[in-house]
Design a protein around this nucleic acid. Structure first.
Lengths: 259, 259
DNA sequence: GAGTGGTCTAGACCACGAC
DNA sequence: TCGTGGTCTAGACCACTCC
C-alpha cells in the first residue's frame, strides 16, 4: 500500500479512497491480513480520520474488510455460498437439517399482524422456533420459524420427556411434528435489512449490521403451513438458489468489472 | 415527532435515535412526506448533526427513508416485490420481456476472468448486452447479460438493417438470437454489493448505494449458455422467488418484530 | 438567495483486546 | 498499559433545488 497522495478529482475523497484501498487489498494483501490502522492511513493519505472511515465503511459493506475493535482491520475472506432454495435446506427432517441448530421456542397467542401473516385467527396458538444456521463452523444466519398449532393438528403431539417442554427441548418437539407435514410448495423473498439487538447478538455482530432477510412461506395441502424469516449475514454470505451448480462460481466482482 | 430528549442508555446515541425516529415515521408520517431537516432534528434531540445523520443512514439502508439533496428527507414507499425466479422474467422472448429494456451491446474478445466464467477460451468473442429493468414506471435494476458467440452458433444470424449493428440495435439482434435457445436450467446467487459509477448512474442513485446483485447462469443443452449479472436497488426492491404467491406478502418488519 | 442534504475537518473520549 | 476501532462533537464549506 503506497504513500500515494490523493489527486484532485471531481468525485468525493472517500469514494476515491475506497478505489485506491480496494486496489491495494486486491494486490498487496491476502485474506485475514491486518491492514494499517485508521490513524496511520488517514495521515498517509492526508485526510481526516472520519473521511478515511467513510471509505472503510464502504469496503466493509461490500464484504471486503472486517473491522474488529481492539484488533484492527482485516481483509475479509471471500463470501461463502449458502444454498437456500432446495427444500432440504430449511425443512426439518431433511438430510441437511444439522445445518440448522434449534435454540429455543415460545408459544403464544398470535397478535394481529402475525395472525394475518399465517392466515389464522387472532389469538390462535402459534409456535415460534428460533434456529441458528452454521456453515463451515461459522454462524451465518438466525431464523424465526413460525407455525400455528392448528396447522399441526393432524400431527400427533410428541413429548421428549415427562416435564413441560421448554426452550430448546420445546423447539425440538415442534420441529419433529413439523417434519411429518408434506411440503408441496414454497415461496420466497429476499431483501436487505439490518440486525437489531437480539439478532445481532446471535450473529456475533453489532446492531445495525446489514443482513439479507429471506422470508419463506411453506405450503402444505394447498394451505400456508409455516413461515420462516431467516436473517443471513450480508458480509459473509452469498445466497444460492441453484437447481444444479453448472460450473464453479466466479466471484461477482470479477464479472461485474471485466469489460 | 415529539421534542423528546434522549435518556441515558447503554446503547449508542445514534442507535437509540434510530429507534425513536423509526417509531415516529411509523406513527406520525406517511409515505412521501418530508420529515424535519437534519439541523432541526439534531437540535431537537440535542445531538451533533453527524450523530443524527448516522441514525438516518441506518433508516435509509433499511429502505425506510429517502434523502434528496436540495429537497429534504422523505418517508420511503414500501419496497416493491420484484419476481426474479420464473424463467419468463429474464430470458428474451418471454411474455414479460418488456420489463427489460435493452440499452446497448458491446462485443469483445473475452479477457481471462470473463472467459473462465463463461467456460470459453480466452479471446473468444463475447457479447455483453446491457439492459434496464423497469417496474411500476421505476428503474429497479440494470443488467449485464453475457453470451459467447460460440453459444449462438447454431442460431442463424439476424440483422435488423443493412448497416453494421451497434448499440441498442446490436443488443436487440443478440437478444433475438438468444431467445431461440432452449433454456433447460438456471442457477442463481444473491449477494449484497454497492453500485459503482456507471451502474449508480443508470439506477439514478449516488455511487456507493447498496444493491442486491443477482448472478444467473442459464444452461442450454447441458452447457452454460449465458451469464446475467443483475443489479437491483436494495432500497426499493424485495426480490421474490415464488412458485406461486400463496398469500399476500406481509411486510417483513411486521413479522420480525411481532413477538 | 434561502434552504436542503453531502462532504470534510480536527479534535475528544470510550470500549475492547492483547500484553 | 497501550493500541485498536467506535462514538461524538462543533463547526465549515459545497452541490443541488426551489422560489
Amino acid at each position: 500500500m503506497g504513500t500515494a497522495q490523493l489527486t484532485a478529482v471531481p468525485e468525493p475523497k472517500y469514494w476515491h479512497l475506497r478505489t485506491v484501498l480496494l486496489r491495494a487489498i486486491d494486490s498487496e494483501f491476502s485474506t485475514g491480513q491486518v491492514i494499517p490502522n485508521e490513524r496511520e492511513l488517514s495521515a498517509r493519505f492526508g485526510v481526516a480520520r472520519a473521511t478515511l472511515r467513510q471509505a472503510l465503511d464502504q469496503l466493509e459493506l461490500e464484504g471486503r474488510l472486517v473491522r474488529r475493535r481492539g484488533i484492527g482491520t482485516l481483509v475479509a475472506a471471500p463470501r461463502v455460498g449458502v444454498p437456500v432454495s432446495r427444500r432440504e435446506e430449511g425443512w426439518p427432517g431433511s438430510s441437511r437439517e444439522q445445518a440448522w441448530q434449534p435454540v429455543d421456542c415460545v408459544s403464544v397467542a398470535a397478535p394481529e399482524r402475525l395472525a394475518k401473516a399465517l392466515g389464522v385467527e387472532v389469538g390462535a396458538l402459534v409456535h415460534t422456533v428460533r434456529r441458528l444456521r452454521v456453515e463451515q463452523g461459522q454462524i451465518v444466519a438466525t431464523e424465526l420459524l413460525r407455525v400455528a398449532e392448528e396447522a399441526l393438528e393432524q400431527v400427533p403431539e410428541i413429548r421428549l420427556s415427562g416435564a413441560a417442554a421448554e426452550g430448546e427441548e420445546q423447539a425440538r418437539v415442534v420441529l419433529r411434528r413439523l417434519e411429518r407435514l408434506t411440503v408441496d410448495g414454497e415461496s420466497r423473498a429476499v431483501e436487505l435489512g439490518v440486525a437489531e439487538a437480539e439478532e445481532a447478538g446471535l450473529l456475533q455482530r453489532p446492531p445495525g449490521t446489514p443482513v439479507l432477510v429471506v422470508t419463506t412461506q411453506y405450503a402444505s395441502a394447498g394451505r400456508l403451513a409455516a413461515l420462516a424469516v431467516s436473517t443471513y449475514r450480508a458480509d459473509t454470505c452469498r445466497l444460492t438458489f441453484g437447481e444444479t451448480g453448472l460450473v464453479e462460481v466466479t466471484p461477482v466482482s470479477a464479472i461485474r468489472t471485466a469489460s
